[in-house]
Design a protein around this nucleic acid. Structure first.
Length: 563
RNA sequence: GGCCCUAUCGUCUAACGGUUAGGACGGAAGCUUUUCAAGCUUUAAAUCAGGGUUCGAUUCCCUGUAGGGUCACCA
């Protein structure tokens, strides 16, 4: 042992008082959590959210990347609940996290499950249940003189930081500011006697002037200063570790090989390396992800749990985005080659896309783009069958739009034929529904009770046609309307009406000689469309009439008198 | 403010030091037996600025500028 360090080792009896617990020894822990036997190249990754009641979309993003990397290499992906913040953690909200991962189909091999039980041999997977492990490891550090107790109060350290700032110094517990670093054992005893609360700090041997080279999986080679701050690693009274210690201890005993985490940890890497080194462990590889950002006023900023609803992963469920749409959007952010892959393999499961470390984009923080998400989502829905849409949207509607769900359920065959419009026999359907929350506006009018609610909107729609003319047009149509007409026959009748009332029978003729006509056949069709649906943009009108059935069509058209 | 990282169309991003700087979303235009959507065709749109190094720089170096991160607690 380094003789210099030996001088700082506290007497045994003091260490006993520091840790008056029955604790496992590090050797016992090593035995209990042996190395994992995995094939060469297998990655062990994890996601470590804190249970604050919300799952952040960024958490889903890093979980997704971690999960894909692990499973593509036949490794292990696990969930660890990081609830070491007593004030903010709410135990019951672990469920939120588990459900979110389940919703986005990000399967975990170990950790808390949806049934509320833990699986895996490296548990417990909740940090608050691992206090003895942290205490044991911190004690071993103290025994080696690599950590020590500090009795400063929060106010004291705060005041110290302010003083340092005032003097233009780097704030932090280091150098001569590290009051308890070399305290005499007697002073320590005295405080212990008094029962002064204390924390354990790492005795840093680093020098801020020294640079270390770190290879980041995502950012490449980085040059960082050594850590010289005696960081707090354990709150003695609660036995709870700080993130830093918990990270080192847990990721070591749980066998993590690759840590994918947020950007905000980059500057802590030297500390973490120091910690692994102090324990004599091999550090994992690190990959730091830039945060997803949004535009706020004129500048970019990280999307925040508190201010931005879109930060909440469950928002996307509430809105009825198919989970795979969100996943594919995130995959695309992670690696833009995904887009090309998807184009080349429209039908494949996105799991077949290989997310390589090399391909991960070195983004500096992408802006969340809802327009793009919508496009991806519409594409995914357009590839679903009518039955699939029915099933999935039903699950959503039951929770979020009971009225719509009721109608859909009562009229299931009718609803499916609605979804089949411009979908039957096509490779892909209309690209109009992006999220289930769109359903009410996109197809709600098919159901009489929902259509009735929209009537005021129908009345407001401008037809561009005088009421009398509109009524004669509708009257003419009803005289010859036969619901068994083929599309061509049906369209001929519409054209007849158009001609009769002075409209061009096609857009082309109208464009050639606009002065000769009142409008074109599309304007005539629009009258029927608005009367039937309350909208100016809908799927193919002929199909709509077919699906609605004669009775409903006639009723709604006749209704035009009252509109 | 110190330190670290980053800088390509509006957005997400490609491009061994040699490309007409590519793609996607969005925009615009056109085509299509009715609207809307899709589809197809076309199109506008970018290397932050200034200095180097080099035959040649989006790419390497320096400076500036801008953005992000971090520096008390929390994770």
């Amino acid at each position: 042992m380094d003789p210099k360090q030996e001088n700082h080792i506290l007497p045994k009896d003091i260490i006993e008082k520091l840790f008056p617990y029955e604790l496992p020894t590090p050797e016992e822990l090593e035995k209990k959590y042996p190395p994992r036997y995995l094939q060469e190249g297998a990655m062990v990754t994890r996601v470590g959210p804190s249970p604050t009641g919300l799952m952040h979309i960024g958490g889903v993003y890093s979980a997704l990347i971690s999960e894909r990397l692990a499973h593509q290499t036949k490794g292990v992906f696990y969930l660890r609940i990081e609830d070491t913040d007593e004030l903010r953690s709410k135990a019951e909200t672990t469920e939120v996290i588990v459900k979110a991962l389940d919703h986005f189909d990000i399967p975990t091999d170990e950790g808390m499950t949806i049934s509320g039980e833990e699986k895996g041999k490296y548990g417990p997977y909740t940090q608050s249940a691992r206090k003895d492990i942290y205490r044991s490891m911190v004690r071993s550090l103290v025994e080696k003189g690599k950590a020590y107790p500090c009795f400063c109060t929060g106010e004291e350290t705060k005041a110290m930081g302010e003083e340092q700032m005032k003097q233009g110094l780097r704030p932090g517990y280091y150098g001569k500011w590290a009051k308890w670093r070399d305290a005499a054992p007697g002073d320590v005893s005295k405080e212990l006697e008094k029962g002064t609360p204390f924390v354990i700090r790492l005795r840093s041997e680093g020098n801020f002037e020294n640079k270390i080279k770190v290879h980041d999986l995502l950012k490449g080679d980085l040059e960082l200063s050594e850590n010289d701050i005696d960081k707090k690693i354990l709150t003695a009274s609660s036995g709870l570790p700080t993130y830093h210690l918990a990270h080192a201890v847990d990721d070591h005993f749980m066998g993590t090989t690759d840590v994918i985490r947020g950007d905000e940890w980059v500057s802590s890497v030297p500390l973490h390396l120091q910690l692994f080194d102090a324990f004599g462990w091999k550090a994992p590889r690190y990959g730091h992800l830039a945060p997803i950002q949004k535009m706020d006023g004129g500048s970019k900023r990280k999307i925040s749990k508190r201010k931005d609803p879109e930060a909440n992963a469950m928002l996307y469920k509430d809105q009825g985005y198919p989970p795979e749409a969100v996943v594919e959007y995130l995959l695309n952010l992670a690696n833009s080659a995904f887009e090309d892959w998807r184009k080349a393999n429209p039908k494949k499961d996105n799991r077949e896309f290989e997310l390589t470390l090399k391909g991960l984009s070195k983004s500096n923080g992408p802006l969340f783009d809802f327009v793009k998400l919508n496009d991806i989502s519409k594409d995914i829905v357009s590839r679903m069958s009518a039955d699939e849409i029915y099933e999935k949207s039903m699950v959503w509607a039951k929770e979020y739009d009971p009225k719509l769900a009721e109608e859909m359920e009562k009229n299931s065959d009718y609803t499916k034929s609605i979804f089949n419009i411009e979908r039957m026999g096509e490779a892909r359907g209309r690209k109009d529904i992006g999220k289930w929350a769109d359903m009410d506006s996109e197809i709600g009018y098919f159901f009489d009770p929902l259509f009735d609610e929209k009537k005021p909107a129908v009345a407001l729609s401008s037809y561009g046609v005088a009421k009398e003319e509109r009524e004669s047009i509708v009257g003419d149509f009803l005289e010859t309307y036969n619901e068994n007409d083929t599309k061509d026959e049906w369209f001929e009748k519409i054209k007849d009406i158009a001609r009769k009332f002075g409209y061009a029978e096609g857009a082309k003729q109208y464009k050639l000689e606009p002065e000769k006509y009142k409008g074109q056949v599309g304007d005539v069709a629009k009258i029927f469309r608005v009367l039937l649906t309350g909208k100016t943009n809908t799927p193919d009108l002929y199909s709509i009439m077919k699906v609605m059935g004669k009775e409903r069509v006639v009723r709604r058209l006749k209704d035009c008198d009252s509109v």
